[in-house]
């Protein structure tokens, strides 16, 4: 546990000591802030707009920009996790230390998860701002963040796995972006295929659908299991890959 916490702290410091996390934060807040402002403006200037959702639901669940931000935030955050260690050779210091591969992977992953949460933290201000002019359903806000956090956690785990597969940060970024893009594209299949296995599969992995559900206050076990699988499988494989370096 000591090694895990030490790794987590080092990774956090490493992420936030470089400009990368700050640039990501700025970009994310600019995009999300712009999207939220335009949604609120749209609702305010069209009083006749009769939708079954409010501005918060529209922001968390219907805006295409939220899943798109996953596409650049998660791969960028996770690309250096192992690729950089292998490129610079610092992985030798880690592998020769009395620490398990699982502790190394989990320490790095948790640091990414904390950073991801910090990136999204300021968006909590949006419902607070909205509260001054309208009623805010906090249950919906909470479930929306469960959706965002669950998917983000899964995509970060995929990013960590991709980072174990190459010594190049760029290649790691491309790999994990490709996987995430595949999820977004598969999600579109939900509306393309007729009812059947393919449509059910696409619906199961559809990011946008999960965000829409959680933005309506629905947190289903099916989605939680999906997110859990998205986290557990890549992390398990990452541990195996790190262990395999000793035998390659």
């Amino acid at each position: 546990m000591t090694a895990l916490i030490a790794t987590l702290r080092r990774e956090l410091a490493s992420l936030w000591l470089t400009p990368l996390a700050w640039i990501l934060w700025l970009a994310l807040l600019l995009i999300e802030g712009g999207v939220f402002a335009s949604i609120v403006t749209s609702f305010a200037t069209n009083p006749g707009l009769t939708l079954d959702v409010g501005p918060l639901q529209a922001f968390y669940g219907q805006s295409v920009f939220v899943p798109l931000t996953f596409l650049f935030v998660c791969p960028t955050l996770s690309m250096r996790a192992f690729a950089e260690e292998r490129r610079t050779g610092t992985i030798e210091n880690l592998l020769s230390a009395p620490v398990s591969a699982a502790a190394i992977v989990l320490g790095k992953y948790l640091a990414l998860l904390v950073s991801f949460s910090v990136l999204w933290l300021p968006t909590l201000l949006y419902p607070l701002v909205l509260r001054s002019v309208a009623e805010v359903e906090w249950k919906v806000v909470a479930s929306s963040y469960v959706g965002i956090f669950g998917l983000g956690a899964g995509f970060l785990a995929i990013g960590v796995l991709c980072s174990t597969m190459t010594r190049s940060q760029f290649l790691s970024l491309v790999l994990s972006s490709g996987v995430l893009l595949a999820f977004i594209v598969l999600g579109i299949g939900e509306n393309v295929f007729d009812a059947g296995f393919l449509q059910a599969f696409c619906s199961h992995v559809a990011i946008q659908s999960q965000l829409m559900e959680t933005a309506q206050g629905i947190v289903s076990a099916r989605r939680l299991i999906f997110d859990g699988t998205l986290i557990a499988v890549p992390l398990f494989l990452s541990v195996r890959v790190v262990d395999s370096w000793r035998w390659s």
């Binding site: 080092r10 410091a13 490493s14 000591l17 470089t18 610079t88 210091n93 020769s96 009395p98 620490v99």
Partner: peptide, 25 residues
């Protein structure tokens, strides 16, 4: 173990780096 070329984390201060190494050891 002192690896060939002594790889270290460039962004860390020496004291912090060794504190981290002491913790994982």
């Amino acid at each position: 173990y002192l690896a060939e070329t002594s790889p270290l984390y460039p962004e860390m201060r020496v004291g912090d780096y060794l504190m981290y190494r002491a913790a994982i050891k």
